[in-house]
């Protein structure tokens, strides 16, 4: 019976998706045409995807960042409250893993920062760069299993970057007339140079820091979730 309901559900979902197929393709409405024709003139960004994500659809991006924040908060809340679970002594990392991870840590952080600083020029941006930074932190956590991330620093990074995102949007509202507007506040600069795109690089760097801090905090809480007594005291 369960399987029957499941297959019917999948079939109905498939029908819905199939009816969306004619909407795909180059004639997907006037908005995409507008973005491709006016994106460069409006924002001076070499990567048009970034112009859409941060400027035209910046409000949605704020929502995505908030969703990530809420899910990480939820995971932290659930996992921190498990008292009295058996704590397995983690195996010490092998020499191979330890050396490789220590060698990779710094290049990964720099690469992640490069991705979100150059979000308006090359593919990638805040989310991708933040994820790469978080995988660098993962390397660190794999080697030093008994160490914790500094929670105060993580909280401040997250809060300040999120606050900065909203503040930038509100400044755009005050100066340019709409939330996250890119008009009039900062010079748009020359196309395809690092200092171009007005507010877009600033917002994407903030998003990168926020995503990196959140995903790192999530990894940290996953690795240390079997909180025994002295760990709990250490973090409080």
């Amino acid at each position: 019976m369960k399987q029957l309901i499941g297959s019917v559900f999948v079939l109905v979902m498939g029908l819905f998706l199939w009816s969306l197929v004619p909407l795909l393709g180059p004639s997907a409405g006037y908005l995409s045409t507008y973005f491709t024709q006016h994106g460069v003139a409006d924002n001076h960004t070499a990567n048009l995807v970034t112009a859409v994500v941060v400027n035209y659809r910046g409000f949605d991006t704020l929502g995505e960042v908030l969703v990530l924040f809420a899910s990480v908060s939820g995971a932290t809340f659930v996992l921190r409250r498990r008292d009295g679970l058996p704590t397995a002594q983690p195996w010490p990392a092998s020499e191979f893993l330890a050396t490789g991870a220590r060698a990779l840590f710094a290049p990964l952080v720099v690469f992640g920062a490069y991705i979100f600083v150059h979000g308006h020029l090359t593919p990638g941006g805040g989310f991708q760069g933040g994820a790469v930074v978080a995988s660098a932190v993962l390397m660190l956590l794999l080697v030093n299993r008994d160490r914790h991330l500094p929670h105060g620093l993580m909280t401040w990074l997250e809060s300040l970057s999120g606050f900065g995102f909203v503040l930038t949007g509100l400044i755009g509202l005050a100066v340019g007339g709409s939330f996250l507007s890119n008009k009039g506040l900062m010079p748009l600069g020359e196309w395809n140079t690092l200092f171009s795109g007005g507010l877009i690089p600033i917002i994407y760097v903030l998003v990168g820091i926020k995503v990196g801090a959140e995903l790192s905090a999530l990894l940290d809480v996953m690795f240390h979730s079997t909180g025994d007594a002295d760990h709990q005291e250490g973090q409080a």
Partner: peptide
């Protein structure tokens, strides 16, 4: 879609896998 490809590789393939393994 290189932007989506980077997201998929960094989050879908790397971080999600690690989080599932730890869980």
């Amino acid at each position: 879609a290189p932007d989506v490809a980077m997201t998929e590789a960094a989050i879908g393939a790397a971080l999600t896998t690690v989080i599932f393994l730890v869980a």
